[in-house]
């Protein structure tokens, strides 16, 4: 099954990206995580995202398009990147998620990819 790991990072993690002294260590952890996934043959598509301050939220309410400075400030942690992995089951996916660097200060959401081919109407 294909599963997306959504890396939700804490503000202090995003701050590391601009911290010259700590940037290498921060990126190094992500790099190692990617290498581990690739070596296990589990790695699908992945990307890191620009920080939440760059986000724009678009919504349409009553036919009116509204464009706002984002993101939704519901949580402290914000999406910092994602990767799609190929695993046998949720337990394997959860083990990978536990190795994802985002979990130290933030959290990782594990979401199965909707398989339209299978036609599961449940």
């Amino acid at each position: 099954m294909k599963v997306m790991l959504l890396a939700n990072e804490a503000p202090e993690d995003f701050a590391l990206r601009d911290d010259k002294a700590k940037f290498d260590a921060y990126m190094g952890e992500w790099y190692a995580f990617g290498v581990a996934l690739r070596e296990a043959g589990a790695m699908g598509e992945s990307a890191a995202l620009e920080p939440p301050s760059t986000a724009t939220v678009v919504s349409i309410r009553d036919g009116v398009r509204k464009v706002e400075d984002g993101p939704y400030p519901d949580t402290k942690e914000q999406l910092g990147g994602f990767c799609i992995i190929d695993v046998t089951d949720m337990d394997r996916a959860a083990k990978w998620a536990a190795e994802c660097p985002a979990h130290k200060n933030g959290f990782v959401e594990v979401r199965p990819i909707l398989d339209l081919e299978q036609g599961d109407a449940s």
């Binding site: 046998t88 199965p112 599961d120 449940s122």
Partner: peptide, 18 residues
Amino acid sequence: KRKIKSAGIPFDPPGVED
């Protein structure tokens, strides 16, 4: 029950570690 199915929660009993 829908989550068990769609999230691929495995039916194998846990390993020693878990």
